[in-house]
Every structure is written in C-alpha cells, then in structure tokens.
Design a protein around this nucleic acid. Sequence first.
DNA 1: AACAGACGCAACCGCCGAACA
DNA 2: TTGTTCGGCGGTTGCGTCTGT
Length: 378
Amino acid sequence: MGRSPCCEKVALKKGPWTPEEDQKLLAYIEQHGHIGSWRALPAKAGLQRCGKSCRLRWINYLRPDIKRGKFSLQEEQTIIQLHALLGNRWSAITTHLPKRTDNEIKNYWNTHLKKRLTKMGIDPVTHKPKTNALGSAIGQTRDAANLSHMAQWESTRIEAEARLVRESKVLLVTNPPSQYHHQLSGGQIPNKATGFVASRPQCLEVLKAWQGAVSGMFGIARDLESPTSTLNFPENNMLAISNLGFNENFVGNNSLQASCFEKSNQIQGLKEKIILDDHEMTTDQGGAIWFQESSFRTSAHENNIEGLSEDDVMLVCESGDGGGHHHQQQSSSSMDGEDQNSDINNGAYNVNFEDNKNYWNSILNLLVNASATWSPVF
DNA sequence: AACAGACGCAACCGCCGAACA
DNA sequence: TTGTTCGGCGGTTGCGTCTGT
C-alpha cells in the first residue's frame, strides 16, 4: 500500500546550481508555480535535480521576495531577541523576518551573532552571562525556566500564526480580496497595502493576553509545559493556570473568552498592586527594585484570584523598562559574578542578570511590543 | 608572491510529522 | 492500521574567498 513509488533515483545532479538550471527552475515556477509537488517539478522543468534540491534552491535563492545583503542592526537585534526566546527554531524566527530565509538567518547566526555574543561574555545558547552560576543557581534556573516556557508559548503561537497565514494565503488565492473581506472575523487584520489579510484568531489574542499577564509574574504551570521541555520544576508552588479554565478550544465561545479576559485583567491589576506596594519593595545599591515573595502571596490571597493559592505562587522574572518596573533582580556594577550571589535567604529571588538588564529587557519588550501591536488587551 | 587558517555561504544530509493509499 | 512518500526543518559539510603572516 502507501503512495506510489518515489523517484527512480537516477543520476541526479548535485552541487552548485548553474545559471541555466536556475533559469529553467525560475521559468517553470513563473509559469506553473510550485504548489503541488516539488517531487514532480524537476522532470517537468527539465532538471536533473531532486525535488528537494529544487525546493531549497527556490526558497533560499531564487524566490523573488528575498532580501539579500548585509543584515541591518534592527534585523540583528530581532534575530538575537528571537533566538533568546525560540532557540534554534530558524523557521519560527524567519516568520518575523519575512524577506530573509531560514538558511540565511541560520548562517548569519552561526558566523556572526554567535561569536559576537560569545565575545560579549554571553552564552549564545542560553543567552546568559558566562559568569559562575553556582551562587545564584536557583534564581537563574527559575528565570531560565520561565523564559523557556515563555519561549514555548511564543513558539507555539508563531507556528500557529504562520500556519494560519499560510491558510489565509490559500484562501486569498481562491477568493478575491473583495469577497474574502467578508470572511473576516474579529481577529483578522487587513493589510491596506497588499490587500492581504493576516489571520489572527481571537484564541491567539487571548493566549497572548493571558501569556503576557501570567508569564510576566508567575511561573508557567506544569500543565502547560511542553512535553519536549527539558526543564523541570521541582517546586510544588507552581501556578495552576489550567485551573482557570483556559483552553484553546474556546474559539467562538464568547463567555469563555470573556472569562479569560477577566482573569487576565485581574492578574494585571494584581501585578500593578504588587509593584506599587512600596513597603514591600526594597532597592539595592544599584537601584534595582526588589519585592518580597510574601508580598505577592498576600496580594494573591487578598485579591482572591481563583486558582491562585498562596502555595500556588512562584515569583519569576518581571521585566521591561517600558512599564517602569523591575523585578527582583540584584544589581551589580561588576561583571565578575563573584558579588552576584543570590539572596534567597531573605525571601527574594535574585536573578543574576542585572548587568544585562537592557539585553533582557529588549527581549521581553519584543514580546510586549508584539502584544501591543496585536492584542486588544495590551 | 605564496601559504595557511579563518570566514562566509550555498547546498546537502538525516530526521520527523503529516499525508496518503 | 500500517507502510510509504513527501515536505519541511535544523545540523553539518564543502568549497570559494578573504586575511594575515
């Protein structure tokens, strides 16, 4: 059974493409497109190449909408920020740099950015400073874990978004824009310039809102961990987000959406309450603001947020210059790491990144800015 | 000028999940 | 349900170019 047998594995050409081959491939795709089967394309186009090779050549080189040449500073920053969030998920990163190919971004990362970060004393894999981590292992572990899960959320969202955009493109092909416009739902954003409609279902908006509110101040619930996650949460005080009834399946269910927004707003309010609660906050010599875990526990209790018991709460990184808030990071004027030990004993988690605050803020701001652009909540 | 090593990038390889029969 | 193919992805390689000695 199964599909009909694959290619005859006849002597297919390998190695660099010649201008003639490029011309053949271009001519064929311009005339017929490539949607259908890359597998069958080479024979039809008169090429002695496998379909995979043709696909790569088209995607990485011949596609007309590719921007080539040096990466701008903005592009570099975007790549670094997204890599911190997504890791080596080049295809996901590429969705934010649509005129660049994943191969190009990957190459640029490996040949330029990785080395640059290393020179700056930042581990290009973890995006953490390469200082001794023993002193603040717990705080950093928590922070890394939180960021990792934020990344997983974001990654999932980007993938879903890319998929929906692809689907939208297909719809756009089959439906002229004037007709398609009538199919818009609340989450879809028409592009005036292109007429293209980016699909952004409300479930993603809510997810974004939820994620922004929750991940900014809590750890991500164990329930929401990706099965592929390699990070573990040994603590028992994780916030059980699933208790709040959030479920991706609520698309189209207005009451559930409203409920979710309500919870999101509740948590946002709680966040502000904590940050404004002066007597619970302290500043260190470097000016970084700290607040005590007990403060949040109390506030969560007082605000009676469903599903948030005192024991459910874990404080994690809350960052971003835009909001004028700093989480409980310890400031240090040196990069040697020796003085950056944790201060867990007094109840505050020390995240050992103050010297790279701007770096991390830029990463988190990327998410915040994205939310501001897309979300009705932020 | 010649050489070696570093660098940059196009292309290939191998794996995985989805689609298909 | 199962076996096979295909498309897509990330990792890696190979080779041409650049740079320093």
